[in-house]
Simulated assay, not measured.
Amino acid sequence: MNELFTNYQTQVLTTLLALGILIITRFLSSKAIRKVGQISDLNDIRTRLILKYVAIGHGVFMVSALVLIWGVNFREVGLILSSVFAVIGVALFASWSILSNITAGVILFFSFPFKIGDHIRILDKELEGINEFWIEDIRAYHVHLRDPQGELVTYPNNLFLQKAVRLLQPDDADSDGSDAL
């Protein structure tokens, strides 16, 4: 065992340093995300979702660092990774909208232009009839909206960022002249 440590002393110490950096950055980023969620009065479920994304990112970073530290043969790893990425690439291409909705959900979390309970108007010609809603929930892929008739509408996060959305005040009137919702 002592001979093993002597032969790989640099790699073991560098791995421990990388692990320490990972723990510190994960703790600090987690604390910062929770603080942003608390300051902007965001739903705890949204905060936990972003924390999960950051944890996955840290994990990918750590695996990459370990591959570099231990000097894994890139030809062997390249063959495995090219096969894995080919399968993942086909899967992501088939579900590209899911990836864009997740990314839009992260952007909505950090920019927090809207909160749960806000009354909004979506300026979209493709929406039939009513375009005023209350935001009921903001999830990873879509936003739950409630229309004046009480029906639940799910609206994809990427469209929520692409379309113009107006935050309505309680005294704003509906487009047909009736009282605000």
Rank of each mutant, 00 (worst) to 15 (best):
Q38K: 09
I39R: 01
S40K: 11
S40A: 11
D41H: 11
N43L: 07
N43K: 12
N43C: 01
D44R: 15
D44V: 12
I45E: 13
R46T: 03
L49Y: 13
I50R: 02
I50N: 00
L51S: 06
K52H: 10
A55C: 03
A55I: 01
I56F: 15
I56V: 14
G59V: 08
F61Y: 10
V63K: 04
V63N: 03
V63S: 03
V63R: 04
S64C: 08
A65T: 04
L68A: 11
I69M: 00
W70P: 00
G71H: 06
N73F: 05
E76Y: 13
E76C: 02
L79S: 08
L79H: 07
I80L: 12
L81F: 11
L81T: 12
F85S: 09
A86E: 01
V87A: 15
V90W: 11
A91D: 05
L92Q: 10
A94E: 01
S95Y: 11
I98A: 05
I98Q: 05
L99F: 12
L99H: 06
A104T: 00
G105M: 00
G105R: 03
V106L: 11
I107Y: 12
I107G: 06
I107P: 04
F112T: 12
P113G: 02
I116G: 00
I116D: 07
H119N: 03
R121Y: 06
I122F: 09
K125D: 15
E126L: 12
L127V: 03
L127H: 09
E128A: 04
G129D: 09
I130G: 09
I130S: 10
E132S: 09
W134H: 09
W134T: 09
W134K: 10
I135Q: 04
I135K: 05
D137T: 00
D137F: 03
D137R: 07
R139A: 12
Y141T: 13
H142G: 09
V143E: 09
H144P: 05
R146H: 04
R146C: 01
D147H: 12
Q149W: 08
Q149F: 11
T154R: 15
Y155F: 15
